[in-house]
């Protein structure tokens, strides 16, 4: 029981730290790291939920849900990283060439 409690507190802290980082960090990469931490916190609570307190009846549905969540999380991370890199690259390039053909909407 106590260990479960510990993991829950740990998970909540992770969620809070991640959310705080997402709100207050300025670097885009760090924001993306923060989202990943938040996700880890949520997954941890989910797994603890499936973890029977007496260790006997283990619910495997949360395991499947977390596996799904991890894959979704890596997908969103990849897209966010690409966008962040593109933005940075554009900023540097626009320092060189002042205007680029902004042809329409």
């Amino acid at each position: 029981m106590t260990i479960t409690t510990g993991y829950i507190i740990s998970a909540l802290l992770l969620f809070g730290i991640g959310m705080n980082g997402l709100m207050t960090c300025s670097h885009q990469l760090r924001k993306i790291l923060a989202v990943n931490l938040m996700a880890s916190g949520v997954f941890l609570i989910l797994i603890v939920t499936g973890f029977g307190t007496d260790g006997s009846a283990i619910d495997h549905v949360p395991h499947a849900m977390v596996l799904t969540g991890i894959v979704i999380s890596v997908s969103t991370t990849a897209l966010a990283l690409t966008l962040a890199c593109r933005i940075q690259q554009r900023l540097n390039r626009s320092a060189d060439e002042t205007a680029e053909g902004n042809d329409d909407d």
Binding site: L13, L14, I17, G18, N20, G21, L33, L37, S40
Partner: peptide
């Protein structure tokens, strides 16, 4: 103990 500490350190 370590998990949240590491998470904090990451940020």
């Amino acid at each position: 103990i370590t998990l949240p500490l590491l998470g904090w350190a990451v940020l």
